[in-house]
């Protein structure tokens, strides 16, 4: 039995004839931290708005927790700007949200939630907060009801590096401790790469790839990079040994996925080539994403 928490089937949203979300079919499972990746205008925020019911699809369908009653599933979201009552303090924002969710007015619990996100603002009104503080409070409001599913649109917007790290640790902790599923859209791929367990890549409203972090890791290409001075000689030696190589000033890349450092060094040493440095380089998430976009562009032209 599938443990899907979100499923979409040909989900589409059009504005004035333009498809902002285009036939998206995906499944996100319980317990995942799913990174929603795409450039500006790719349709990530619109997709999140569809999933939260803020807007209705033009066609297609989606289901939150298809295998259990919707009322048993608590969903929280932070879409674009933080949704807060500016005239209330941080504590009162939580108290208002608690009333909405039918949670008891437990100040100690609210204090703990604010501490979790690193907020200590007393009676200061939310309207006077910085963007980073508003973001933290919005996350606290989202987490208040212990939701099963949390959708976050650029949650680290406006946060300093320490704040970004703290939030990352918080999401991982909540995911591991309480099994909360996160769907997080972010431009900072290097940050997402540190904790996401699966990814949905979106381009021009279409889902171009959905994969787990493990699948991407195994598909990310590796190469052996050798820094040296005599590039032409090294190039000939490695080509002669049957490797696929690319040479540029001061370095040679051996592109074969199964190339071993020891073997490459051995070939060059036998040929009398002096090596400055040798290392194995893996394709980053950014490289993988850029490669996906290129492939998608080629496919669109076909």
């Amino acid at each position: 039995m599938t443990n899907a928490i979100i499923t979409t089937t040909n989900l589409t949203k059009e504005y004035n004839g333009k498809r902002v979300v285009d036939n998206v079919t995906l499944q996100i499972n319980q317990g995942e931290i799913c990174g929603l990746v795409g450039k500006n205008g790719a349709g990530k925020t619109t997709l999140m708005r569809l999933l939260t019911g803020l807007i209705t699809p033009t066609s297609g369908s989606f289901a939150i927790c298809p295998n259990q009653a919707r009322t048993d599933t608590k969903v929280a979201a932070l879409i674009e700007a933080p949704s807060l009552y500016g005239g209330l303090s941080a504590m009162d924002n939580l108290r208002a949200q608690a009333r909405l969710l039918g949670i008891a007015d437990d100040r100690a619990y609210f204090d703990k939630t604010l501490q979790l996100v690193g907020l200590d603002t007393g009676n200061q009104k939310a309207a006077t907060f910085s963007l980073g503080m508003k973001q933290r409070l919005a996350i606290a409001v989202a987490l208040l009801g212990k939701p099963s599913l949390v959708l976050l649109d650029e949650p680290t917007n406006g946060l300093d590096p320490q704040g970004i790290m703290d939030l990352r640790q918080l999401f991982v902790q909540l995911n591991q401790q309480f099994g909360i599923t996160f769907v997080i859209s972010s431009h900072i791929l290097s940050e997402l790469g540190k904790f996401a367990t699966s990814y949905c890549f979106v381009n021009n409203g279409r889902l171009i790839k959905q994969a787990t972090a493990a699948e991407i890791e195994s598909n990310c290409s590796k190469l052996v990079r050798v820094n040296l001075q005599d590039v032409p000689t090294a190039y000939s030696l490695l080509k002669g040994a049957g490797y696929t190589v690319e040479g540029r000033l001061g370095q040679i890349d051996v592109l074969d996925a199964d190339a071993k450092v020891a073997d490459v060094v051995g070939v060059l040493a036998q040929g009398g080539v002096d090596i400055v440095n040798v290392q194995t380089i893996s394709q980053t998430l950014e490289d993988y994403y850029v490669a996906l976009l290129k492939e998608d562009k080629k496919c669109q032209k076909c």
């Binding site: 608590k74 929280a76 700007a81 807060l84 949200q97 909405l100 009801g145």
Partner: peptide, 17 residues
């Protein structure tokens, strides 16, 4: 109108109402 201008209507909609 605060719920519309501040976006807090999202929180209300997400609370299964």
């Amino acid at each position: 109108g605060t719920d519309f201008s501040e976006g807090t209507l999202r929180n209300v909609l997400l609370s299964n109402k």
